[in-house]
């Protein structure tokens, strides 16, 4: 037996994986199976969106951690020999994928930006970033199953098609894991999704204090855009929520216009703005790496330049 499997906790991520899974399954002339936690999502929806088979796992009990499913997934894979297993690259699923891959002695390509079947040599070729985004690494997996994690947002979500049918089967209930989730602190998302923004003003450590970000907000407002940030701003300073962090470990953005303020432009950040149409930056260090990845750079102190820009924009 063979097949392409997809594993994601959230429906929106599963639908993206179904899109690429469908492509691979068609090219490899095999079926597409989706792993689904019962009670969380509707199996029929997944079938309508491209799955030929649904593997229904017991719902995770309260306090249960996903790692309880490692043996269930590995046992299923050992019995059914899928060609490839695609995981959504979310925190819990990345972890799950790595442990399942280890248990099955197979390779896992993390955070793939592209997955393509090469009919000529019958391999799945995967691309990912390396060296902080300075390099694109192309890999193949010589062991089976080929395992992959794919960051959310990489593919379009599959759409439902009328008249699709598929089978459903139940998997065994796992023994509880020793790892226990004892508390969940859910946060509410307070910002817009910047991956869709047309204009982004990104703030970096060049800002002295949190209140000063108002300057960036004003500029974003004048340009009709949103603000984003570097990892230290969200992660170390906690001045802005993580979902605004742009780069390797944050989001990839594709605005028409990106303007970095006090951003050094190290490769892990720069890699997140590769798809921006126009990149501009304000930095007081003329040798800052951001200038070599920017179309237009102003060498100067942002506290001096931003008010001037605001003035000039008023006159436009």
């Amino acid at each position: 037996m063979s097949g392409i499997w997809i594993i994601a906790e959230k429906k929106e991520h599963a639908l993206e994986l179904l899109t690429i899974g469908r492509v691979l399954a068609a090219q490899m002339e095999t079926k597409l199976s989706a792993f689904l936690w019962k009670d969380q999502n509707v199996p029929e929806d997944y079938i309508a969106c491209g799955a030929d088979e649904i593997m229904l796992a017991a719902p995770g009990s309260e306090g249960q951690s996903l790692d309880a499913f490692i043996p269930v997934i590995a046992a299923e894979a050992e019995n059914n020999h899928p060609d490839a297993i695609l995981f959504a690259a979310t925190a819990r699923c990345r972890d799950l994928a790595a442990r399942v891959a280890s248990r099955m002695n197979t390779g896992l390509c993390s955070s793939c930006t592209s997955v393509a079947y090469d009919a000529a040599d019958r391999t799945i070729k995967m691309e990912r970033l390396a060296y902080g985004g300075a390099a694109v690494q192309k890999v193949i997996c010589k062991t089976r199953p080929v395992m992959v994690t794919i960051p959310p947002g990489t593919f379009e979500q599959a759409k439902a098609e009328a008249g699709r049918t598929g089978i459903q089967r139940e998997l065994s209930t796992p023994a509880p894991s020793v790892l226990k989730v004892i508390e969940k602190k859910t946060k509410v998302r307070e910002t817009k999704d910047i991956t869709e923004s047309r204009v982004i003003v990104a703030v970096g450590r060049g800002f002295d204090k949190k209140e000063d970000l108002d300057l960036a907000r004003k500029l974003a407002c004048a340009l009709g855009g949103e603000i984003g940030c570097t990892r230290p701003i969200s992660e170390e300073n906690h001045w802005l929520p993580e979902e605004l962090c742009i780069g390797l470990s944050g989001v990839q953005v594709k605005p028409d216009f990106y303007l970095g303020l006090g951003v050094s432009g190290q490769v892990q950040h720069a890699t997140g703005i590769r798809q921006a149409k126009v990149v501009a930056a304000v930095n007081k260090d003329e040798n800052a790496p951001i200038f070599s990845v920017a179309d237009f750079g102003i060498v100067g102190n942002l506290y001096d330049v931003v008010p001037k820009l605001l003035e000039a924009l008023k006159r436009v």
Binding site: A101, N105, T106, G107, L108, C109, K125, L129, A130, G133, A134, A135, V136, Q137, K138, V139, I140, C141, K142, T143, A270, T271, R274, V279, A280, E286, F291, S292, V293, A294, D295, F296, G297, I298, V299, G300, N301, D304, V305, K308, L309, A312, L313, V316
Partner: peptide, 30 residues
Amino acid sequence: CLETVEMKAAKMDRSCEKFGTDAAEIARFV
């Protein structure tokens, strides 16, 4: 398990034009 078949430098083609901070330069930027 994994084999790297290619490792290429990522491309980032930008015009890298620099501007100063006086009024004329800011106006040129805008």
